[in-house]
Design a binder for these strands. Structure first.
Length: 591
RNA sequence: GGCUCCGUAGUACAAUGGAUAGUAUAUGGGUUUCCGGUACCUAGGAUCCAGGUUCGAUUCCUGGCGGAGCUACCA
């Protein structure tokens, strides 16, 4: 049992003893703010109803009784109705010994729960960009955090590999590509496909302009541009599995998969199982038919199929086009059902998708519920805010898209430069230095993105993200490297022999912060928030640096103290590594 | 227009309804007999506006102002 629970339990006992009351409001216990003495603070305001005394008196009676009866409570102090309880140093030293002897400190062994986490889910017509980075880092990290909470996790994605947008790239390549391949051009596969997606758009614009010059309205021109009609025709050919089109689709998709594979490797993310829209959209259609029979959906005169959600406060929503082809919703219905069929024992299905699709998922879950799937209530949309740039939105047409590969490479290059500047690792081989630059550059990027609450939109300033000072990944990595340097010099970590009475304030503060780690991991899991972990690790590092600055570790006169400080440093290092690991960030032993 | 989300120092981010609203960056002033100065210490600077609920509101409610997203037979 953790200390918070112990304290609230004792307070409950005290209340029963002093006031004979069995039924009281939930205990409000929080950590004592820095400016007051004490470790935990009980807010007595909610208890006044049962004590029928003023805040001072109530706090005094409870504090008095706690000190008298609980061995690890040393003293109490009352400030404005807040009861501050101080824990004994001996308790904290014991807690530290416990922490250092715990394997995988902070992690839960087995919760018995299985969770599927979907993230990434790109379209196969263009490379990944900045928005995908937030998605991938978030999805991966949440999956790791859930594992740390003892859940079995299945990482997955839905690959959006069919549809008109894919045909646009294919058509443009057919018309203008002149047989260009990743091999012949030296261009990464996904970037090559993306190049033709852009090419299509350029041609399309040109044709619209031509048609308008010939007297058509803008609306007509947009609908009747020959290249668009060709793309639509190609989509039909694809659905009919016409060999030539199908072969082209397979070839260009493979270029994308190869390119994505490289990018995922560079990001450090992975998946346990994959779903393809081209395989699930037909399955979704089957359930639309079934829902139509059940009366969940209705058919309009033109043949399109809809659902009426006005009773749920929403609108009417299309689930199948009049020509019988599938929309996004159709395949999402199919994919969800397929997943529960493949993995019947999952307890939760998490979709990591941007908040511009909040409405879509509200509708999807409602539809699944109406189709009679019990598990619909286990579906959760992990909705994250958009990534904004200092100079406005990312728009592919205006060339303001921040490419994922380019951005990561830029970060690594900057890390390399910084490393050369400081020269701590100039004796290492080129390979080792390159690996370090990769670790630091990617660490900076991941930390920069993950330290922000996922629900909130975030500003991405490329020039600020490469700053290695302040609340950044490299700041944390540096602290870890410095700790490893201490351990190297100490030639290992030895058991603690120091007395509790010798502990300094800064040492006590560090122990208390280490003691919080399991609670942080738990909260991060409940909130699906890597930011909780990031902010905690940052605070821990700041506290450690302050300790490091003021407390000489290697002290010839007090061997026990030296060993303790090395041991404390080592534990801080372990928690830094563990926490960063949950963010998908590695930490170096030298940098 | 309708619906949803968001407004915290110059900028970027924190704060289960709790105490004097934290941190970074930028700006000013400091720290090397010592273990890695990518560090540490220190100063100034903020809750969009008006009401309401509450012992107590950055947090909850209402209205205004400002911003973003959704509102496609797109994904």
């Amino acid at each position: 049992m953790n200390i918070e629970n112990k304290i609230t339990e004792y307070v409950a006992q005290v209340l029963v003893r002093l006031f004979g009351e069995q039924d009281f409001p939930e205990m409000q216990l929080q950590k004592t703010r820095k400016e007051f003495t004490g470790d935990y603070t009980l807010n007595v305001f909610p208890l006044l109803k049962i004590t029928r005394k003023n805040p001072m008196e109530t706090a005094g009676m409870i504090g008095e009784e706690m000190v008298k009866t609980v061995d690890f409570i040393e003293s109490y102090e009352i400030v404005k109705g807040f009861l501050n309880l101080k824990i004994t140093d001996a308790y904290w030293l014991d807690a530290f010994k416990e922490i250092s002897s715990t394997e995988n400190f902070g992690f839960v062994k087995d919760s018995g729960k299985t969770v599927m986490v979907e993230y990434s889910s790109p379209n196969t017509n263009k490379p990944l960009h900045l928005g995908h980075l937030r998605n991938n880092f978030l999805g991966y990290s949440v999956a790791e955090i859930l594992k740390a909470n003892g859940h079995k996790v299945i990482k997955t994605q839905i690959i959006n590999d069919r549809g008109i947008h894919i045909c646009k790239s294919m058509l443009a390549w057919q018309l203008f590509g002149d047989g260009e391949t990743p091999e012949s051009s030296g261009i990464k596969g996904d970037h090559l496909v993306g190049k033709y997606y852009v090419k299509f758009d350029q041609e399309y614009k040109k044709e619209i302009a031509d048609q308008m010059a010939a007297g058509k309205t803008e609306e007509e021109a947009k609908k009747e541009a020959p290249i668009l009609l060709s793309a639509q025709a190609m989509l039909k050919q694809w659905e009919a599995k016409e060999p030539e089109v199908y072969a082209l689709w397979e070839k260009m998709n493979q270029w994308c998969y190869d390119g994505f594979g490289t990018t995922y490797k560079s990001m450090g993310v992975d998946f346990d199982t994959l779903y393809y829209e081209s395989e699930t959209y037909l399955y979704g259609k089957d359930f639309v038919s079934e829902g139509l029979e059940k009366g969940v959906f209705y058919k309009k005169e033109d043949g399109s199929v809809w659902i009426d959600l006005t009773e749920d406060g929403l609108d009417h929503k299309l689930v199948l086009r009049s020509d019988g082809t599938a929309v996004y919703m159709t395949q999402d219905i199919g994919t969800a059902i397929q997943r529960y069929k493949d993995y019947p024992d999952i307890n939760q299905l998490i979709y990591t998708v941007g908040n511009e699709q909040d409405y879509h998922f509200k509708v999807l879950f409602l539809i699944l519920n109406k189709l009679g799937f019990e598990w619909a209530k286990e579906c959760y949309h992990l909705s994250y805010g958009m990534v904004e740039l200092p100079h406005g939105k990312m728009k592919s047409r205006e060339g303001t898209v921040v490419d994922a590969d380019d951005l990561m490479q830029g970060m690594v290059d900057d890390a390399q430069k910084a490393s050369e500047l400081h020269g701590h690792v100039s004796d290492q081989t080129e390979e080792e230095q390159a690996a370090l630059a990769d670790m630091v550059g990617k660490g900076a990027l991941k930390y920069f993105i993950l330290k922000v609450d996922p629900k909130k939109k975030m500003m991405f300033d490329p020039s600020a993200s490469i700053d290695l000072n302040g609340n950044t990944g490299p700041f944390i990595q540096y602290a870890h490297a410095r700790i490893q340097s201490i351990i190297r010099r100490a030639e290992g970590v030895h058991p603690v022999t120091m007395e509790a009475s010798e502990l300094s304030d800064k040492e006590l503060e560090l122990i208390k912060m280490l003691n919080d780690y399991p609670t942080i991991v738990k909260e991060a899991g409940l909130n699906f928030s890597p930011a909780n972990i990031a902010n905690y690790v940052y605070d821990l590092v700041k506290q450690y640096n302050s300790f490091y600055q003021s407390s000489p570790i290697f002290n010839d006169e007090n061997e026990a103290q030296t060993q303790f400080r090395v041991s404390l440093s080592a534990e801080v290092g372990k928690v830094i590594k563990s926490g960063m690991r949950l963010l998908g960030v590695q930490v170096p032993n030298r940098m």
